[in-house]
Amino acid sequence: MTESLRQRTLPAPMVPDKRILIIIPAFNEEASIGGVISLVRKHAPGADIVVVNDGSTDRTGAIADGLGVIVLNHIYNLGIGATMQTGYKYALRRGYDIAVQVDGDGQHPADQIIDLVRPVAEGRAEMVVGSRFLGMGEYRPSIARSAGMVFFSRLVSAIIRERMTDTTSGFRAAGRSCIEFFSSKYPDDYPEVEALVLLHKKGFRIMEVPVEMAKRAGGRSSITPMKSVYYMAKVLLAILVDLMKRA
């Protein structure tokens, strides 16, 4: 009871008449999760926050719970794709209009959530991606990572015939129809790039807005050099297979 009372949505000053859910996927993020939650609270007043705890072995779930946000605890680790999807399923069932993905590691700028939400709220796109490479910011990935990011951005741009600059960014906002689609289908691991291709095939409008990302507050990238080869192969294969499937 108290839970639902605490979470009662106030009209968001930034976008009235829209119920917004901030989805924070978290796996062992005890160092940063508290900070992320308070920043999101501060910059997205009126939005509900759900932390999807993907079987963390540290205090991530407890910390989030203590801060009074909704916590969805996976009973064991299911991976980032399933974690995001749990968030989308929650958003769908509770009838949210817009869902925003914000990483639990503190890399995504909470003060720019509004920039992602606005185009969705105004009906200009069903999916808005925060790009680190549209002018602002000083995010500089390593040469190898940068090469991979450029490769996927070019590939996705070619497929969806629209310029995409940051297809691996997980800082995104999704509209109602998009939430519904993701609830039924969402890639398992390394989902960001493939999700865009899937959305495009379904005819959703995708849009990028510039964002400026901070350094991580804690934890580190889930993508080690060892995994990056697998990443490339898996995502590439998934995209090719998606293209071969009938829409």
Binding site: V71, H74, Y76, L78, T86, Y90, R93
Partner: peptide, 9 residues
């Protein structure tokens, strides 16, 4: 698992 998570919530 997702269903269980949502039901628990």
């Amino acid at each position: 698992s997702q269903e269980l998570t949502l039901i628990k919530n």
